[in-house]
Design a protein around this nucleic acid. Structure first.
Lengths: 128, 128
DNA sequence: TCGATAGTTCAATAAACATTGAACATAGGA
DNA sequence: TCCTATGTTCAATGTTTATTGAACTATCGA
């Protein structure tokens, strides 16, 4: 039987392969910034979210596209479990490569949460 | 006599108009990141550099394009003096809007200076 | 006043990007 | 075993992007 593509974990860059321009470019898109922000908010509750939790941000296939970019640049990790894909922030790797960067971006985003139309923390938790 | 366009200072966004996605997008381009980095290195010597100081990074008209993007997003300020345009980083405004962000990016860039082909500090100073 | 220097503007081009919907693959439950 | 939920793949579309060179404008100094 031929191995099934979809059940395999997609490729991720190693920590050392994470590149600053790619990370910044990823974070510069409002939808991807919202994904990363929501992931960060959720971290206190659980470190993972699945694709469906972001349905409010864009259409399904568009989200797949943005997830791939976030994965390719090293910001997110995807874990496959059954029919779900669980995402988490690669906090430690980011912190090791670019100390303070992710937090500076997240705090900047939090400051402009209204302007950027980001979900408030309570929204995320309640939506569970 | 009709006022001469080129002698006027180009428009800049106010501090409040500076937007996070635009700033990140600006910094995600390797040439623009190099410009900002060089400007930051130079700050200890003088807070300003003129277009010609960046000739190593790209062609003249391409530089004009990147300078415009940096100015439009609020990262740089341009001052016109004779036939020169002097650039400086809008450090205070950036710090007020997004505390810690610029420094986190600059430190990250410094860590990857080789990979990003950024000018070493001594190169900048010696090139004067 | 002329020439050189500094930088801008404009049009053209090729590549990358975000977005959509339709078709598909996979896993789990009735 | 079939139905449903979850998510991916693919092709098509229109937009934005970076880069180039040629023509231009403005300023300074000889």
């Amino acid at each position: 039987m031929i191995p099934h593509i979809m059940s395999r974990t997609p490729p991720h860059p190693t920590r050392e392969q994470i590149e600053l321009p790619l990370v910044l470019d990823c974070l510069s898109d409002p939808i991807r910034l919202a994904i990363v922000y929501q992931l960060a908010q959720q971290e206190r509750v659980s470190s993972e979210l699945c694709c469906g939790d972001f349905n409010g941000l864009a259409g399904k296939s568009n989200l797949t596209y943005h997830f791939a970019k976030l994965r390719d640049c090293g910001l997110m990790q995807t874990r496959v479990a059954g029919t779900n894909r669980f995402m988490r922030l690669r906090r430690e790797d980011l912190e090791a490569r670019f100390p303070g960067l992710l937090d500076a971006v997240l705090q900047s985003a939090a400051k402009d949460a209204d302007r950027l139309q980001l979900v408030a923390e309570c929204d995320v938790v309640e939506a569970k």
